[in-house]
Design a protein around this nucleic acid. Sequence first.
DNA 1: CGTTGGCACTCGGTATCCTCGACTGCCAAG
DNA 2: CTTGGCAGTCGAGGATACCGAGTGCCAACG
Lengths: 330, 330
Amino acid sequence: MLDDRKTAILSAVVHEYIATAQPVGSSHIAAAPGVGVSSATVRNEMAVLEQEGYLIQPHTSAGRIPTDKGYRFFVDHLSGPGRVDEATTRQVGDFFAAAHGRLEELLHHTSDLLTGLTKNAAVVLGPKAEAAVIRSAQLVRLSSNAATVVLVFGNGTVENEVIEIDEDTSDATLAAAAVHLAANLTGCSLASAALPDSGDATVDELCRAAFAAVRAVSTDDHVYVGGASTVAEAFDAVEVVRQVLYTLEQQFVVVSLVRDIVDRGMSVAIGVEHGVEPLSACSVVVAPVVVDGEHVGSVGVLGPTRMNYPQAMATVDIVSDRLGRRLGEG
Amino acid sequence: MLDDRKTAILSAVVHEYIATAQPVGSSHIAAAPGVGVSSATVRNEMAVLEQEGYLIQPHTSAGRIPTDKGYRFFVDHLSGPGRVDEATTRQVGDFFAAAHGRLEELLHHTSDLLTGLTKNAAVVLGPKAEAAVIRSAQLVRLSSNAATVVLVFGNGTVENEVIEIDEDTSDATLAAAAVHLAANLTGCSLASAALPDSGDATVDELCRAAFAAVRAVSTDDHVYVGGASTVAEAFDAVEVVRQVLYTLEQQFVVVSLVRDIVDRGMSVAIGVEHGVEPLSACSVVVAPVVVDGEHVGSVGVLGPTRMNYPQAMATVDIVSDRLGRRLGEG
DNA sequence: CGTTGGCACTCGGTATCCTCGACTGCCAAG
DNA sequence: CTTGGCAGTCGAGGATACCGAGTGCCAACG
């Protein structure tokens, strides 16, 4: 643990570096409020902080920049609960007040909102359909050998999947299957639903196929990634930009990344902490979206390790909170 | 019009520049096959080509690079019909043979396919629901004051939208509206559908709301943009990368860009030709997706003006063709 | 007359060198 | 323990020189 003065100095270094992206020297810190001490003393303290791994020098005779460990200490001990300014609060409020329509739209726009507020890439992970209550199940013939199964869930999501059917399946059989599906799925969640035999083998066959298809689809994640262009500004090394963008395009990587962080109960993963090597120059700030005490999704932002943590954390928190409330009403 | 020798020289410059991204000098061209002439002669010809606007010199005593006009001449007169190698043909074939499931998935993966084949950003514009035949219309209550209207179209698309309803709307009214909707929409396309009065004012009110909502949604475009990370490699100026990425994120810009090019009957828009200023360093190669003689969508790739046009055009063509066939079967 | 080899010239890129200044670490005095 | 002072370090940035790729022009040639 660090004493008060080291703490204040580290804090000042982090703040300054976040603001300027330049290595920060002892005299700047000595001038900072809250550090009433000469630059020589600051130098001594900074040497200690460097030895303990909170700071590094890019090269001798340069200022210091925080390490991942330094940022970690900062977010754990220094940044407080985090406040968002009033304009942000209002903007978020307005957004969710004005939001209407489909869940997908809402999540998509939420990601844009986060990007706009934090100037970082944003990730929104929506609720899986699996757990939601099925309000309607339907089977619609598309052609002689294809049909669509459509489920409407209580949260407003609609999932569908195309299944192949036998050429000689009669419309009557299809209708019977549709009725059987509707009767047995409506009111349950997909996870809990079971499909008893109907007595007709052909109908059962159809129903099983439909059920399997829609169950497979409903385990897909609803993930929305926005603000990719911000990473082009955050890093000056083209290679890093490319790697980060490429990784962001692999949505399953992003999904497991975010989910993993949330599951570990963390709200911030700094640099290598999240274990995704191509993103080791990035930090991720996440918050779970909670409805009725249940964790139904996540929101987060991804930016360079020298991101504005207090602001990002506060923004992510307020957005996840409001999104949760919104989903609770809907 | 250019004589044969100028044509050959321009062609060689374009090929060389596409391959190396370096200004190309007269001696390289003189050595190229098909140009049996000394570097001095090439220099004279290049000077003419520069005066006529096909080439420019970044600075005196550097080689030349093609202008947009040079690329335009190249694609119009030089690149021939374009062949894809066998591996590509097979890969595309395999892709569409293996593809199954929902239209959205198919389009999304098609964009990934194009990115993989051309190493450029890819755009896939799917069919609008508007024109497709409605196979099923449904109205499902979500809560006391919200319902979802769901349409299933003959091409396998499912569109839905949430509408607000009066708290005191009875389930019976909702059911009546559902029946009325289904009766009047099934079998038509959204564009051609009309909604006669049912005799019950409340039901009509609901139906109108549902119809309006779903009609609004169905005019949305299904657009899939992939391969954003490739643009980080294509340009070395960070600012250009940022602008291009940002523009690609504005999906409506991309949509109107692609649509405009296709509508003008063009297959390639080079640099400023497409009129989107932030993308003036980019070319776009597009092809319409045609099903039964009808233009239902578009595919395209977007890359730096020094992209490999013959390969891109051939790839886009074959993908659009196979996608059209695939949509025709489905 | 078009083509070609030759030649002088241009100019960006790279390397070298230097200076400047922003740091640091250390030390001795307070 | 803190602080002012001081010598030392090292990268950034500017000046200089050089190199080489490439050009334009011209005179000679078939």
